[in-house]
């Protein structure tokens, strides 16, 4: 994206930006670190791009989920690159994300980062992974299948009961 478009986004969504969570650079080796930090813990990883109309729908779905399940460990990774930081933060705030673990691809070829995350992922977006505590996962291109999400929540949420039946 270019300077003018970024500037316009910034102007349009300055308020949203001010409330947005800090973006961390997601570089080579970060997927391994991310997994190591979550040993024996379930979590959700989602990847998205500002250029992808389907991503906004998916982010809204996950933001609602996070609101219903504050204990949920949700890792949000944007693939646009550090130049897009402001647009990324603005979009996250606009869809209702609070202070979550939010990252942006940086410092390595996107092909490498995709390979480290999942070599069976073709780069389509949104892409979401439901990780079990043993780090086996189910992957979704596009919105997460609501039934799969309910089952994952039933297994992995604190009280064992899904609270949100309309993810």
């Amino acid at each position: 994206m270019n300077i003018a478009r970024r500037a316009a986004w910034l102007l349009l969504l300055a308020c949203a930006w001010a409330q947005a969570a800090e973006l961390r650079p997601f570089g080579a080796g970060d997927m391994t670190r991310l997994l190591a930090e979550r040993q024996e813990r379930p979590f959700v990883l989602t990847l998205w791009s500002t250029d992808c109309p389907h991503c906004r729908t998916s982010l809204r779905q996950l933001a609602a989920l996070a609101k219903a399940h504050p204990e949920l460990d949700l890792v949000v990774v944007n693939t646009d690159g550090p130049d897009e930081g402001k647009a990324v933060a603005a979009m996250l705030a606009a869809v209702g994300f609070g202070a979550h673990d939010t990252w942006v691809f940086a410092g390595a070829a996107p092909e490498r980062l995709r390979y480290e995350i999942d070599r069976h992922w073709g780069g389509e977006m949104p892409r979401t992974y439901l990780f079990e505590s043993d780090h086996r996962f189910a992957a979704f291109s596009g919105p997460v299948d609501p039934a799969a999400l309910r089952q994952w929540l039933a297994r992995n949420s604190n009280d064992g009961q899904p609270q949100d039946r309309r993810p």
Binding site: S49, D51, C52, P53, H54, C55, G122, G123, E124, M125, P126, R127, S141, G142, P143
Partner: peptide, 8 residues
């Protein structure tokens, strides 16, 4: 079957 952006 994909309701997403392949960008490809």
């Amino acid at each position: 079957q994909i309701n997403a952006c392949p960008h490809n």
